[in-house]
Design a protein around this nucleic acid. Structure first.
Lengths: 199, 199
DNA sequence: TAGATTGTTAATCGATTAACAATC
DNA sequence: TAGATTGTTAATCGATTAACAATC
């Protein structure tokens, strides 16, 4: 969130930002902003605030997005295509190294600079290249199988874009991003809004 | 999360689940599971556990996904197409009522049961139909403009799929789901993992 | 009756925030 | 010097969890 806001500020704002400014844009308490940042170091100047560019650099260092990271994408459907062609990935140093799909008709298709490969080649690719990040954008049924193959191939961090509950071995980080979960969350707020309106 | 896990349990598990079972699958402390549920009512039976089907019903009532909800989708690119054709939406009672895009070439295209309309018709559509949920899947530059139009048209809950920081009027719920944010989050864990490995 | 498991209390733990000295 | 704003302490607040009586 901070990175997003700061990149925005760099474009059109002054070169310096206070915790109050950042707090307003992120809807986070200014004291919280300062505390979050000081957890990693002392980046501001008393009486002045934070230099936007410097702070962006620092946060990128902390996150590790100051250098590039290759990843594999499994699933070349609509979602996979959206992820692969998403410009923001490259802007933050992510390189889609290879794309795999089980569907023969999708193999050979070009997405951005990458040609979709058969899922059968996933194993070998992971052995040849040391890739640590994998994105799962396959039908829910196949999610666990893909996760197993990725883990076996040395992938340490997975982003699961299916609603399927996936089990991974210890030492592997799994992050779930289910679009429906987000919508259901949304819906809960909507119910409450309308509930309030009805009363 | 609970809903996901319970739907999974309904498929292949026994008809009853304890807070320990749910806790294991969600990696949430059993006491937390019980506390979360009792916040909305008393759904379990001492000595027995929770009836899976009943609990699913209750959670769907709480979330509001026990009846259908129409939504509009703005943006018919890869991401929009992925969202619109995602089966899970319908399964949870979401109906993609209309899809809009600014790109003339996409207007008239069919995604699922819906024909993509020109963004110029968004205003009228929102006036004609009382739609409360909007999904923003457009290029970042256009996000704010779309949000403004949605808000003006009576949309109360928005899901923003762009990395753009979007401002909405009071009373409108905005949820951000930036895929890059998720990846950067992931990256932080990866840096830490590798940092530990290096030491 | 014995074992299992909930709902809930009480204790713990951690996160948030107000406040302020330090300092630009 | 006066105003602004950080970094950090101390106080507050809320979330998590252990423990257990209630009860199936």
């Amino acid at each position: 969130m901070y990175l997003n806001v700061l990149i925005q500020l760099r474009q059109d704002g002054p070169s310096t930002a206070s915790s109050a400014t950042v707090g307003q844009l992120t809807e986070i308490n200014p004291a919280q902003v300062r505390r979050d940042l000081t957890h990693f170091g002392s980046f501001g100047r008393r009486g002045i605030g934070y230099d936007v560019t410097t702070l962006i650099d620092k946060i990128q260092q902390i996150l590790g997005s100051d250098h590039t990271h290759r990843l594999v994408l499994v699933g070349a459907g609509h979602l996979g295509t959206a992820i692969a062609s998403y410009d923001g990935l490259r802007r933050h140093g992510f390189i889609v190294s290879a794309i795999f799909d089980a569907d023969r008709r999708k193999v050979g298709k070009r997405i951005g600079d990458v040609i979709v490969q058969s899922i059968d080649e996933l194993d070998r690719t992971l052995k040849d290249q040391a890739i640590r990040i994998g994105i799962i954008a396959v039908p829910p049924d196949a999610a666990q199988e893909v996760a197993d193959e990725l883990a076996a191939g040395g992938v340490r961090v997975m982003l699961n874009y299916t609603p399927q509950v996936v089990n991974v071995p210890e030492g592997v980080q799994l992050h779930n991003t289910d679009p429906v979960r987000e919508l259901l969350h949304t819906l809960y707020y909507l119910s409450r809004l309308e509930g309030v309106a009805r009363v």
